[in-house]
Amino acid sequence: MIRAGGIEKGMCLLIKGEPHAVAEREFVNPGKGSAFVRLKLKNLRTGLVLRETYKSNDNVETADVFDRDVQFLYSDGENFHCMDMESYEQFDVPMAGLEDKANYMKEGDTYTLVMWETTPIDIKIPLKMVFVVTEAAEGVKGDTVQGASKIVKVETGLEVKVPIFIKEGEKILVNTESGDYVERVNT
């Protein structure tokens, strides 16, 4: 429990049984009234935005949210199966709500799970990741209208727009937030 007046941006709160992150916090003193805290919160499971107002001496439940490093084993279409390589504990992370991350999940790579008590609620993807090009058409000569680029596929099924000189079997660095090609990786 925490007094609402002590809530800071970035804290995790348990509201109506759901973990929420504090996105915005504003203090308000109505004329001739006690102090209030206006919050904008983000549900950590659904991403939905919630607005709540508390009196600063109300007690609010905090959500115990922490990070845990795991290895991604495989996905079965419904869950990402992961394992903590120190304790060998396994976690099934439901893919619902995390579909956009599936193309960035590489078997055997290490990811950070966001845990709420014993339940995984999110997976953090590194900002930049290296992928192997598994399907690439030969560059078409004279095709300079689109800035001489083409679409290739990498081992996770992700499609990336790359310069025409990229060949099958080569490694590329991809920005996982935008899905954009960054550079060719020579190893």
Binding site: V28, P30, G33, S34, F36, R38, R51, E52, T53, Y54, K55, D58
Partner: peptide, 23 residues
Amino acid sequence: GLHVEDEESWADTFNRLFVDRVE
């Protein structure tokens, strides 16, 4: 759907409503 404490004063409940919805 607002959070309200049991036994709080009329003014406190009114101010919750005012701060959350009216202001």
